[in-house]
């Protein structure tokens, strides 16, 4: 194994890893908003609004993220949508993960015992107040864990934006394999970076989970 080479290419990979983190974090952030809107739409009183939200979620989950990415990046200009590669990665990532996340959030909310809703409503709390004070605090734990799983998927999915030439970790790894002819060394280093990122996400998720569910440990 060529240790010198690994030391030499490490800075390049670290820099690319930061792009991976950046693009994933932004997609997660916007994805959360999209997911919240979708959850609201799915519980709308107007049936067509509910159907539309369900159709969107079904189509996004039923087609490959990779094809979505290619469609928006290469096909977008045909409908007047021109995005630079990085923005395209963030936007498609957010709209993709948002669909999955809306299901995760809905599942977490539905996991709270219906008696909690009744008790709160019987005290005179409205729907939104009940959601805010009673349901969400109890759903938060499960929600954080499922969003965490999706965040990890998002990090791994972000490798696909290398195809539209965003210089993130996988793009850089592929280029370095091509220029150094040392696939093992490059793979090991870039795999290590993904592992570090994913374990960092897992750590944050665990921290937030413990904070959100402190009451169950007391």
């Amino acid at each position: 194994m060529d240790i010198n080479l690994m030391i030499e290419i490490a800075p390049l990979l670290v820099k690319a890893a930061w792009v991976t983190v950046d693009i994933s974090a932004r997609a997660l952030f916007f994805g959360f908003f999209i997911a919240s809107v979708l959850v609201a739409l799915r519980t709308s009183q107007t049936p067509p609004v509910r159907w539309l939200a369900r159709a969107y979620i079904s189509v996004v989950r039923g087609t490959p993220y990779f094809v979505q990415l290619l469609l928006v990046f290469y096909g977008g200009p045909a409908i007047g949508l021109r995005l630079d590669p990085f923005t395209c990665g963030v936007v498609v990532g957010a709209f993709n993960i948002g669909a999955y996340m809306s299901e995760a959030i809905r599942g977490a909310i539905e996991s709270v015992d219906s008696g909690q809703n009744e008790a709160s409503r019987s005290l005179g709390f409205g729907r939104l107040e009940t959601l805010r004070h009673i349901i969400l605090p109890q759903a938060a734990g499960l929600m954080i864990r499922s969003v965490g799983v999706l965040a990890i998927i998002l990090v791994k999915n972000s490798s696909l934006v290398s195809i539209i030439s965003v210089v993130e970790l996988t793009y850089q790894a592929q280029r370095l394999i091509g220029s150094t002819y040392k696939p093992l060394e490059v793979f090991m280093l870039s795999a290590l970076m993904y592992i570090v990122i994913i374990y960092a996400v897992m750590g944050i998720v665990e921290f937030l989970y413990r904070r959100a569910t402190r009451y169950t440990f007391r």
């Binding site: 990090v155 791994k156 999915n157 972000s158 490798s159 696909l160 290398s162 970790l169 996988t170 790894a173 592929q174 394999i177 091509g178 696939p183 093992l184 490059v186 793979f187 870039s190 795999a191 993904y194 592992i195 994913i198």
Partner: peptide, 15 residues
């Protein structure tokens, strides 16, 4: 399970 499919594919393909 902790690394992306595409990275694994590149490694296998070139390796």
């Amino acid at each position: 399970m902790t690394t992306p499919l595409l990275l694994q594919l590149y490694f296998l393909y070139f390796g």
